[in-house]
Nucleic acid binder design. Structure first.
Length: 334
DNA sequence: ATGATTTGACCCGG
DNA sequence: CCGGGTCAAATCAT
């Protein structure tokens, strides 16, 4: 029960925060949206916990091996709510929060794109055509003409997204977005309360992946981090994935059917536990090390295991449900 | 030993 | 010249 209370308290806190920050948010719809969404989610989480409890209390003798079709009303209800919540979250994310989708379906979320896009589109191509020397294929710098082969800002397409920031635990943990990032710098920014962290794609060396991101906590609302993406993941395309994702509706259908993808932003909002994966000093470490696909499933599993405790088998049931239609398959090298 | 993070120095555009 | 972005050596983690 304390768990539920904790969830509720968190929801209250978020709502209160939203209330307080509302005047500041009216002209920033992204933040407003994000905040509302998180409040909604917090309550939804609390509700889910209650459902779980209902479920376990009314069918305690069935315990963990309950299989589908034999559940009590509460179980069904709980399952239903869980599904609804998941589906809802995923739809919301698909439309606004998921940078993968943002990259793959920029048309769908154009509201989040900045005006600073560079005509010409393809980053890699653009870099090449601009004669920028990055690194050569062997990974060595190609020294020529005194100046450093450094990409300058504005060379890459820029996309800004708002993510909820963790309030407890390692609050410096950047939002998980499905890619593996390596931190290469941190800087105090003039007029900003919090330092900005710089990340680049881990596969930069191997695959010349130009993707980068900056993570910056907002000063007027530290609960939100502004993530600026630059460049697209060519490594993602070549390594894993789907050079093109299924059309959005299909994707959503797949996700909600398979229940394997984790709601990304929810991972950092777990109110009653500290999900620090490493680095507890909060000194700016902790680049995200989860990757899309497998680890997400693992995270989801861990999430379900921790959160459901001994109360119900529903989550597990969802987790192990066959789902071959995942669109991220492997990380095979070529 | 290898890879990631930290952090001061450096570079460049405005 | 200043500030933002990046480099790279030192350090840390595994």
């Amino acid at each position: 029960m304390e768990e539920v209370m904790s969830f509720m308290m968190h929801a209250f806190e978020l709502a209160k925060n939203l209330d307080l920050e509302l005047p500041n948010m009216v002209n920033n719809t992204e933040i407003l949206y994000s905040s509302i969404h998180e409040v909604e989610k917090a309550y939804s989480d609390a509700k889910e916990r209650v459902m779980m409890m209902l479920s376990s209390s009314s069918s305690s003798q069935y315990n963990t091996t309950t299989t589908k079709g034999s559940g009590s009303f509460a179980q069904i209800l709980s399952h239903d709510v869980f599904m609804q919540k998941k589906q809802h979250d995923q739809i919301m994310h698909a439309h606004s929060m998921d940078p993968l989708l943002l990259i793959q379906h920029p048309f769908d979320v154009s509201v989040f794109l900045e005006n600073e896009m560079i005509s010409g589109g393809d980053d890699a191509q653009m870099l090449r055509s601009k004669g920028k020397q990055l690194v050569d294929v062997q990974g060595k710098e190609t020294p020529s003409s005194s100046s450093r082969p450094k990409q300058r800002k504005n060379d890459l397409e820029k996309r800004i997204e708002m993510f909820p920031a963790p309030q407890i635990g390692n609050t410096e943990m950047p939002p998980e977005d499905g890619f593996i990032w390596r931190k290469y710098g941190q800087k105090e920014i003039l007029g900003r309360k919090y330092p900005r962290s710089y990340y680049r794609c881990t596969h930069q060396k191997l695959y010349l992946c130009p993707a980068k991101k900056q993570v910056q906590r907002l000063d007027n609302n530290p609960n939100i981090v502004e993530v600026t993406y630059r460049g697209e993941h060519i490594c993602h395309k070549s390594l894993t994935a789907p050079s093109s994702y299924p059309p959005l509706p299909n994707l959503l259908a797949n996700i909600s059917a398979s229940q394997t993808q984790t709601n990304i932003s929810s991972e950092m909002w777990r109110p009653s536990m500290n999900l620090d994966l490493r680095d507890g000093d909060g000194s700016g470490g902790g680049a995200s090390n989860l990757r899309f696909g497998v680890e997400y499933a693992v995270a989801e599993m861990a999430d379900a295991m921790f959160n459901s405790g001994s109360s119900s088998g529903n989550s597990m049931e969802l987790l192990f449900q066959p789902s071959e239609d995942k669109w991220e398959h492997d990380e095979k090298e070529d």
